[in-house]
Amino acid sequence: MLPQQMWLNKSTEDKLKKYKEETGINPNYAARVAFFKSIESGFIYDKSKELKLTGSLKLDKHTWLGKTQLVTELLLKQRYPSYSDKELQAAWAAHVEDGSM
C-alpha cells in the first residue's frame, strides 16, 4: 500500500513543526490527528492537482502512522481504490495538509 518512506510538502511540515513548538506534540502524532480530521471532514484529494512533496522530514510509514497504520491504509484504499502506492502517499499527504489548516 503506502511506501515505506513518506514525507509531506514543505508548508505542511512547517505547520507541524510550529505546532510542536507550541504544544510539544511531535509532527508524526500531529500528522495522524490531521489525517483523521481531514477524512472526517469529507475532504477528497484530486490527483490532477499535483502535490509537490518537498519536505525534508522523511520518515518510515511506521513512524508516521504508528498504530493507526492499518486503518489509515484501509481508509485510503477505500476512498481511492484505483490509486497506485505513490498516489496513495500523495493523498495521505494532502489529507494531512488539509487537516493541519
Rank of each mutant, 00 (worst) to 15 (best):
F36A: 02
K67C: 01
K20P: 01
T63G: 10
L74V: 12
E87I: 11
Y19C: 00
K52C: 03
A90Q: 10
E87H: 13
R79D: 02
F43W: 00
G24S: 00
K47G: 03
Q89K: 14
D60G: 10
K67G: 02
E21H: 10
N26W: 10
Q89D: 13
K86A: 10
A90R: 04
K20W: 11
L57D: 13
T72F: 05
A90M: 06
E87Y: 13
Y29T: 09
T63V: 14
L53A: 00
E73N: 01
S48V: 12
T12M: 10
D14R: 11
L70T: 12
L53I: 09
K37M: 07
L75N: 15
Y83C: 02
I39C: 01
E73K: 07
K47W: 06
Y45D: 07
K15G: 03
S48I: 10
D85M: 08
P81D: 12
L57T: 13
G55S: 06
D60C: 08
G66D: 02
S56T: 09
K86Y: 14
Q69M: 12
Y80W: 07
A31F: 15
L51S: 09
K49Q: 14
Y83D: 01
Q78C: 03
Y80Q: 01
T68Y: 15
L70E: 09
F36D: 00
R32F: 09
R32N: 10
K17H: 07
E50C: 09
E50R: 15
K49G: 09
P81M: 13
G24N: 02
F43D: 00
L76F: 03
L57I: 13
A90W: 08
F35W: 07
G55N: 08
G42F: 01
L57S: 13
L88M: 15
A34E: 00
F35I: 07
Q78F: 08
I44C: 06
S82W: 09
A90G: 03
L76Y: 04
A30Y: 02
Y83I: 04
E40Y: 12
E22T: 13
Y45N: 03
G66H: 05
K61L: 00
W64F: 02
L53N: 01
I25M: 07
Y19Q: 01
T54L: 14
N28L: 06
K47I: 08
T68S: 15
K18A: 11
I25S: 00
P81N: 14
K17T: 05
T54Q: 11
E40T: 09
I39H: 05
L88V: 09
K49I: 10
K61Y: 07
L53K: 05
S38Q: 08
L16N: 04
E21F: 13
V71N: 15
F43A: 00
G42C: 07
K67T: 02
S38L: 09
K77N: 11
K15Y: 01
L16K: 10
N26T: 12
V33F: 11
H62A: 08
E21A: 15
D85L: 12
P81S: 14
L65F: 14
K61C: 04
V33R: 10
A91W: 03
Y83G: 00
R32Y: 12
